[in-house]
Structures are given as structure tokens and as C-alpha cells.
């Protein structure tokens, strides 16, 4: 019924679900690193961008699909580790505000580097383009990528959840997110849990890069920049302190923007960012600690 009012067809709904799923993955990537480092990584989108360029080059060189995906993972993971080493580590003792501005700077830096190296026109990542074709499910056209994105996202979320719940390093990461100082005094190695979080977060960025290049094959230096801003808003909206609310926030904002973007006529959908961010601001005013968290937890000590 609501779908009827919004004038949404099944395809739009599927696409919105897929966008929500991809944003949820980005939210987990950002939330994991925030958990152990108390650092909001503004440059997360540039990891995705790097992965997308890897895919674009791989398809330009006519590499087989699996090799392109492998390259994407290799580049993104390497860049994540370098970022941790050169930026996060020296910043560990700084205030959250300084860290936020610093990762903002890194985001810009990486974007400018991409501009310098690859030019403003962009490259096409086409090897996974067939996923854009629709399949017909009980009379409704649904793009394959929408299904793939949702399935992959669910699998990734389950994998991350299992890793956090069942493994020793996962337990240590959760403990470090709650009280890093005490965890270290128990013998939990800081570099190991941070490295673990950074790597998982990087792997998720690579997955996101693959999903996004299917939807938007043209890879430009500002690839995923807007998505990151929206996801950050969603993550803060959901509540950064915990992974589940953060993920829900990411999903919610992706789903909402997919749905509104598909349902509104163009004259209105061009104002989609305004609608989205107005909603974000409104929610932040009502619940500054997040929509999906319990009342008294405070976000941080800035």
C-alpha cells in the first residue's frame, strides 16, 4: 500500500534494497575502524575508489574477471594498511576532531592523486557489466546486480559477525572497542586488533568497489565520494558506538535514498540530497547519540 502511494515499482524496491545493502557494508567498514580507533575514516570512499580503478584497469588490460577482482582486493588492502601505518597510527593519541579533519585531508589527497594520475575523464570498468542485465522473476524485471548485491552483503555481514563472535581476534576487537586501555593491559596486542579491523574494513571496501562499479562503470576520481558522505551521515545517524546500529543506519539511508530517488519525479529527485540531509539533521537533533542506540550512551568526549 505504501508502495502504491510512493508510486514505487518492484524494480525500484530491489535497487533500493541493493543500495541499502552496499551502504550497510560501507557502514560496517567505517564502524569497525571507529570501534578500535575512535576514528571516523573520511577517506573510506577513496579506498573504494582505488578498488574501482583497479577493476577499470583490469578490464582495460582485458584481464580475466577473477584477476581483476584479485587486483581490486590487493590494491585496497595494501592501501588500507598504508593508511593505517602512515596516518592512523601517528594520530592515535589525537582528539577525534583532529582525526576527522586529518582523514578529510587524506580523502582529498587521494582524490587529487587519482586526478593527477588518471585524469578527470574517468575509466570504464566493464568486466562485470553483464550483471546489469535483468532477470525476470514472476513477471517483474530485476537487475541481477540487485540480487547479487543483497546476497553478497548478507554473506559479508554474516562472515564479519562470525569473525567477531567466534574468533579470538574478534573477541579482542570487541573488547578493544569497549575499553582499549584495559584490553591492552590484559595482553591484547593493539597493533593486531587495529590491523585486523583495518583489514576487514579494507576487504569490505573492495567488495563495495566491485558492487558499485557494476552499477556505475565510469570510475572518476570522485568515485564513491558522495556515497561515503551519505554513509557517514547514516552511520552517525544510526549510532557509531556500536556496529549493529551503525550498520542499520547505513542500510536505512541507502534504502531511503534509493527509494526516494526512484519514486520522486526528476523535478523533485534533484533535491534528494537536501531531503536526505535535512532528515539526517532532524534526527541528530532529536537523538544526537543515534537512532538505534539506547538513551544514555554518549557518543564521545569531544
Amino acid at each position: 500500500m505504501i508502495l502504491g502511494i510512493l508510486n514505487v515499482d518492484w524494480q525500484t524496491l530491489a535497487d533500493a534494497l541493493a543500495l541499502g545493502a552496499v551502504y550497510a557494508l560501507m557502514a560496517v567498514g567505517i564502524g569497525l575502524v571507529f570501534g578500535v580507533l575512535r576514528l571516523v575514516n573520511f577517506a573510506y570512499g577513496q579506498l573504494v575508489m582505488a578498488g574501482a580503478y583497479a577493476l577499470a584497469f583490469a578490464s582495460q588490460w582485458n584481464w580475466p574477471r577473477w584477476a581483476g577482482i584479485l587486483l581490486c582486493f590487493a590494491i585496497v588492502l595494501a592501501l588500507s594498511l598504508v593508511m593505517d601505518r602512515l596516518v592512523f597510527r601517528p594520530l592515535r593519541t589525537q582528539s577525534p576532531a583532529v582525526m576527522l579533519v586529518a582523514t578529510f585531508a587524506v580523502a582529498f589527497l587521494l582524490q587529487s592523486v587519482a586526478l593527477l594520475w588518471f585524469g578527470p575523464l574517468g575509466k570504464i570498468a566493464s568486466s562485470l557489466a553483464p550483471l546489469n542485465r535483468p532477470v525476470v522473476i514472476s513477471g517483474v524485471d530485476i537487475r541481477k546486480i540487485a540480487i547479487v548485491a543483497v546476497v553478497v552483503a548478507v554473506l559479508c555481514l554474516v562472515a564479519v559477525q562470525l569473525l567477531l563472535a567466534r574468533t579470538t581476534v574478534g573477541l579482542q576487537m570487541r573488547a578493544a572497542a569497549m575499553d582499549f586501555r584495559t584490553a591492552r593491559m590484559l595482553g591484547v596486542r593493539a597493533n593486531r586488533v587495529i590491523g585486523g579491523a583495518v583489514l576487514i574494513s579494507g576487504a569490505l571496501a573492495a567488495v563495495v568497489a566491485i558492487m558499485l562499479t557494476v552499477q556505475t562503470p565510469l570510475v572518476t576520481p570522485d568515485f564513491a565520494l558522495r556515497d561515503t558522505i551519505v554513509v557517514l551521515a547514516g552511520v552517525v545517524l544510526g549510532g557509531l558506538n556500536r556496529l549493529v546500529p551503525a550498520t542499520l543506519g547505513g542500510f536505512a539511508i541507502g534504502f531511503a535514498s534509493g527509494l526516494l530517488g526512484g519514486a520522486l519525479p526528476t523535478t523533485q529527485s534533484q533535491y534528494l540530497p537536501s531531503i536526505l540531509f535535512a532528515a539526517v539533521i532532524l534526527v541528530l537533533l532529536i537523538r544526537p547519540n543515534g537512532l538505534f542506540t539506547r538513551g544514555r550512551e554518549s557518543l564521545e568526549r569531544v
Binding site: 551521515a233 552517525v236 540530497p273 535535512a278 537533533l285
Partner: peptide, 14 residues
């Protein structure tokens, strides 16, 4: 803090 950072960013976006 963070909420202010994101909200002001939202203002810029709007």
C-alpha cells in the same frame, strides 16, 4: 563532536 561535524556537513550539502 561528531554529530556537529556531520550536521554541518549536511548544511553544506543542502
Amino acid at each position: 563532536g561528531l554529530a556537529a561535524g556531520i550536521a554541518t556537513f549536511g548544511v553544506l550539502e543542502i
